[in-house]
């Protein structure tokens, strides 16, 4: 039995400290656990801000964000991270370890998992994301596409039930994009819910069961298929 993750936003208003007007002007949105939801909209419409809000990285000025019924502002980032995975736009800021292998293993190790269990899961992820031949490499010397696959693998190894991906197709060539799409389809059939933020309209909407369009910090359209 998989537990469905639900992220529920009520009248969320947010303004960056040094800006004059709010980026998000009262958003009501409920994204539920399964299927792929695409979040599209022009540059600067507030997509990234909304994604960060849903992962509890930013706290709303007013309104509330609830993750599985709990107020996100009362949860620590570590707690949220065990339920929601977040892929940042910039891969460099989310790579930490000296080797690819350790990048996948260190969180489990800190959390006290058994070594053979870790080795098995790391092996799985290396295969699944075509990273086996790079296992001893220094993560920062990988290509942008390889870095992104590594970050995705490192997030998924913790088995989050919901995944937020911010512009996952940036800097991916046609083949890598197709591979990413395949990975996301697999996750979808495993019951992992996803929110894909992208202005690559075609990529984001092809597999989506719901498309949310943001304009000027408000939900402009919300279509379910």
């Amino acid at each position: 039995m998989t537990v469905m993750t639900v992220i529920d936003l009520r009248n969320v208003v947010y303004q960056y400290p040094d800006e004059k007007r709010p980026v998000l002007g009262g958003i009501d949105l409920c994204v539920s656990g399964t299927g792929l939801t695409a979040l599209v909209g022009p540059n600067g419409s507030g997509k990234t801000t909304l994604g960060k809000m849903m992962a509890g990285i930013l706290k709303p000025d007013s309104g509330s964000v609830r993750i599985n019924g709990r107020d996100a502002s009362e949860m620590s980032l570590g707690e949220i991270g065990q339920q929601v995975g977040y892929l940042f736009q910039e891969p460099d800021r989310q790579l930490f370890a000296p080797t690819v292998q350790e990048e996948l293993a260190f969180v489990s190790r800190v959390r006290g998992a058994a070594e053979e269990d870790i080795a098995g899961r790391v092996g799985n992820m290396l295969d699944r994301f075509h990273l086996s031949h790079l296992r001893e490499r220094f993560p920062f010397s990988l290509s942008r596409g390889e870095k992104q696959r590594l970050v995705l693998a490192a997030i998924l190894i913790q088995c989050p039930r919901f995944l937020i991906l911010d512009e996952p197709t940036t800097a991916l060539d046609v083949r890598r994009k197709a591979e990413l799409a395949e990975n996301l389809s697999d996750l979808d059939s495993e019951g992992v819910g996803m929110l894909v933020i992208s202005h690559d309209h075609e990529f984001a909407t092809r597999r989506a069961s719901r498309v949310i369009e943001l304009r000027g910090g408000a939900v402009h359209a919300d279509t379910r298929y």
Binding site: I57, G78, E79, I80, G81, Y86, F88, R93, Q94, V110
Partner: peptide, 18 residues
């Protein structure tokens, strides 16, 4: 940068507080 990295590492599921 430090702040972003700290956010990202916690979102991997590390409860720094415990």
């Amino acid at each position: 940068e430090a702040h972003d990295a700290l956010t990202a590492i916690q979102l991997r599921g590390l409860k720094l507080e415990s």
